[in-house]
Computed example of a mutant assay.
Amino acid sequence: MDRTVVITGASSGVGLAAAEQLAAQGDQVVVVGRNPERLAAAVAKVRQAGNGREPGQFRADFESLKQVRELAAHLLDTYPKIDVLADNAGGMIAGHRRTEDGYEATIQGNHLGPFLLTNLLRERLAGGRVVSTASDAHRSGRPDPANFAGDEKTYKAFRTYGGAKSANILFAAEAARRWPDITSVSFHPGVVRTNFGDGTLTRLFYRFAPFLVTPEKAGALLVWLATAPKEDLVDGGYYVGHDVKKPASHAADPVASAKLWAASEDAVGI
């Protein structure tokens, strides 16, 4: 099947590995990344994996809702059907920082940006699939829909990241309830050896810790979730490996997911 697959955060790590694997299967892959140099290098790798087939590409920083809207406009103008959207962009940020939109950078980059993109592409995704890269780190924190701007004085990187990953799981479950014509899942890729986060200690950990999962293995899980027959997946499910797992209670609450959805709509202006 010749699918059109959009992967955000595809210039390195899990996203790039999945992009290469999907291109090798013959899919039309659209590579989205933030850094121009890494994006260009990723496109070259995906092209090679796809035996010369030219992948789509677009540079967008999810810490800018304007750039997310520009990405959505480009995709809508270019692709009449989008079979899979992999909301994979994101990361952990060492210190509190507000974006140009006024929101804390972790929640915007990991949740609000992907939330906006997916909603803007909603009709083009009809009959398709949305795969959100979450994490078992969600157990360490929960999102605060009443305060997407965060608090500089109480900011803790891992807790804030955990809240953003909880938001990914809540979003996938709520999308499954609201959009029955789109299969929506989230997953824990493992602790992946990749260029992840900012801050020297965080980068060293994610490059050299001995128990880390390879990007290729995590990418293969994303590919399976993107391509497995619909009847083999649990719509709205949170996957750890090939199995659905129950997330932490705060990330499995339909009331919380509905509140998060409404607050996110207000925050991004849809």
Rank of each mutant, 00 (worst) to 15 (best):
F115E: 05
V240Q: 15
L16A: 03
R97H: 13
K153R: 14
A167F: 02
I93P: 00
K259S: 12
L75N: 03
E152F: 01
E20S: 10
G33D: 07
L71I: 02
A41N: 11
Q108V: 03
L16W: 01
T200N: 06
A146H: 12
A60S: 09
A226V: 10
V191K: 04
L71K: 04
L39K: 09
S166V: 08
A172Q: 03
K259N: 13
H96Q: 07
F211D: 11
L225H: 05
K217H: 13
Q25Y: 04
F187Y: 15
G33Q: 11
A41M: 01
G56M: 01
A258Q: 12
V255G: 09
S257D: 04
A258S: 06
S264P: 04
K230P: 01
T200K: 13
D101K: 10
N110M: 02
G162W: 07
A44N: 01
D266K: 15
T183F: 06
F171W: 14
V46I: 06
A228S: 05
Y79K: 07
E104A: 04
L221Q: 15
Y79C: 05
A42G: 00
G26Y: 10
P143Y: 06
I182W: 04
D253I: 03
L65Y: 12
K156I: 03
R139Q: 14
T133F: 04
E123Q: 15
E104S: 03
A134K: 02
G102A: 02
L16D: 00
N110I: 11
G241Q: 07
A267F: 09
T78G: 00
E37Y: 11
D151M: 05
G102C: 01
W179C: 03
K156M: 12
P55V: 01
V234R: 13
N147M: 04
Y161V: 08
D87W: 00
L260S: 09
Y103A: 02
P143C: 05
S166F: 09
E216W: 05
Y103W: 14
V29E: 02
P145T: 00
A40L: 04
A176D: 04
A157V: 03
G91M: 11
G26L: 11
D151V: 14
P215R: 06
V191A: 14
V244Q: 05
E123V: 01
F208E: 03
M1A: 13
R124V: 08
A218D: 12
G199E: 12
Q21H: 06
A73D: 14
E265C: 11
Y79G: 06
E152G: 00
V43N: 12
K246S: 10
A149C: 02
G15Y: 11
V68L: 09
G190V: 08
L117N: 11
D136M: 15
K66M: 10
N110C: 07
Q67D: 10
V29D: 07
L75E: 10
L22C: 00
H96I: 02
E152S: 14
W224H: 15
G56A: 01
T133I: 13
R34T: 02
V255L: 13
A175V: 03
E63T: 15
E54V: 07
V29R: 07
S11L: 05
V46D: 02
A258Y: 08
A167G: 04
D77Q: 15
V14E: 07
V213A: 10
A44K: 11
T78Y: 06
A105N: 11
L204N: 12
T202D: 00
A89W: 02
A40C: 00
T118V: 00
K165R: 07
S135W: 09
P143Q: 03
D181R: 06
